[in-house]
Amino acid sequence: MHFLDFEKPIAELEGKIAELRHLSDSDGMNIAEEVSRLQAKVERDLSSTYSKLTPWQKTLVARHPDRPHAVDYIKALVEDFAPLAGDRLYGEDAAVVGGLGRIKGRSVMVIGLEKGRDTETRIKHNFGMARPEGYRKARRLMNLADKFGIPIITFVDTAGAYPGVGAEERGQAEAIARCIQTCLDVRVPLICVIIGEGGSGGAIALATGNVVLMLEHSIYSVISPEGCASILWRDGEQSKTAAEALKLTAQDLERLGVIDGIIHEPTGGAHRSPEAAVSAVRDAIETQLSQLVKIDAGQLRARRRDKFANMGRNALV
């Protein structure tokens, strides 16, 4: 298990518990009471720590390597999954994963930005940083879903679109712009879930849905706290301050009216009990989906467009 800095006291307690268990195994001592006392303290500490995470701590949690990723949600939520690949223009970009499947028997199109979990998969998925092919593939899948009246669900988790020479040459900006345009244009329900990091243009490309949800400890921002600190403060050390100023937490975004809801994470964050996180996301998606499928196609499109056309009007925190 990977522990974040502010989780150190909890890590120590858990270390103690493991030690006690080990001792009791070898000496036959009865320490059940002590263990359960410590276990309770762990729970208490976790819940108090996680109930008041700072924006910077949330940034670290959102990037936690053990946090469930797009592929984990797809695997757990979608039955009868048929992965689809390629943009039919240039190539296949595995930073964007997607395909057809079923949720509660209903056909859905799922599209996710996937970071990868170990060295091999991280390289394969390019650390979740999509190239133009990825956004064009997403667009292709959305248009396909639109043609057959299939609701779309996106999982957003990226530091941002890939900044590279080839990506620029092949029109990274155009690919993102068209992807946003398509999100706003489809006549099927579009549900977007920000599951970890919502990094700037690379994230909004797949996040202009009828309903945009965020996991409790995920972040969504115009620029990373580090990038903002180095530009506005001229000091990369000011990331914590920048994280505060940017208002990038799910709670801030809900207050600003940018997102439609927050999905609660298990105590200690989604990385502590991925199953619980997946199940919370499942409930949220099913609830939203059952509502959205009742709305007429033209209305779905019009409401989505109106929502984003008004974004920022009268917003004051």
Partner: peptide
Amino acid sequence: GARMQEGILSLMQMARTTVAVD
């Protein structure tokens, strides 16, 4: 590009201006 001082609201202008030209 986006005006960082308006945080996420500046990012939302990407969607907003897309609707405008659409």
